[in-house]
């Protein structure tokens, strides 16, 4: 039997500090993760790395929706990613990783295993 994998949650910031529809970048086990709070209050965590420009910037994109699906647009060349799945809606063959995210005692945590 292989060793059990234990989920590792990293604290990011207070939920109240997140501006709705504006992301932040967090360092989670050495990786840059973009964390977003939508208008309705839902949380999403995605890799911060924009696969098109390879710059670590997705947290700085504009949050909105396309056909009702919550999205973020890369600030570099404006490709749009679905927040829930990380899939690029302009080119579905490309996607970015997503991470589990939760709130514990008012603090946002991202899981990185």
């Amino acid at each position: 039997m292989t060793a059990p994998v234990r989920a590792h949650w990293t604290a990011v910031c207070r939920y109240d500090d997140l501006i709705p529809e504006r992301g932040v970048a967090a360092l989670v086990d050495g990786r840059a993760v973009a964390v977003f709070r939508t208008h309705e209050g839902a949380l999403h965590a995605l890799s911060n790395l924009d696969p098109f420009s390879r710059a670590s910037v997705l947290s700085r994109g504009i949050v909105g929706d396309r056909g009702g699906r919550a999205t973020v647009a890369s600030p570099v060349y404006k490709q749009v990613f679905e927040l829930a799945t990380g899939v690029c809606l302009d080119d579905p063959s490309v996607s970015v990783s997503t991470y589990p995210v939760r709130v514990v005692n008012g603090v946002v945590e991202v899981c990185s295993s």
Binding site: V12, C13, D17, V24, A25, A26, L27, A32
Partner: peptide, 13 residues
């Protein structure tokens, strides 16, 4: 800030 949870750390990329 570079990272909300690590404001002193510059973006390693």
């Amino acid at each position: 800030t570079s990272f909300v949870n690590a404001p002193g750390v510059p973006d390693p990329s």
